[in-house]
Amino acid sequence: MKGFKATLLTGRSLKQGMGKEISKTSDRYKESVSICEVHPKDMEDAGLKERDVIRVTTQFGSVIVKCVPSDHIPKPGIIFIPYGPYASALIGMNTNSTGMPTFKGISAEVEPAPGEKVLDIRQLLTNLGR
């Protein structure tokens, strides 16, 4: 198993949309946003299987999520995490004087993280200082 470099996109997904309507504290919401969509070829090259735990790191932060293969991903080297506290851990706060942080198109590294645990939302908040 080995890591790879990728461009991170974040965005809406239907599951995230439904998950947040159930409850932000529900397992369904957590399940829907603590994933990372990866190109099947990248999965294979990295020796990853569906729902394997991975660490995604950008220059702004790092987060543990589960990887899922997706045919929506156009080509190897692109990864997608739905909006939510997991994606936010990887986003920088520079807005280029527009108010809008760059949520799409961020250089990231992906590495398998066997044995690591996907934090629950409470723990993420503790990391934020509360």
Partner: peptide, 13 residues
């Protein structure tokens, strides 16, 4: 806190 970049969220906290 779910949708802002981590460091911004930290400042809100």
């Amino acid at each position: 806190l779910a949708h802002f970049p981590k460091d911004v969220a930290q400042n809100l906290c």
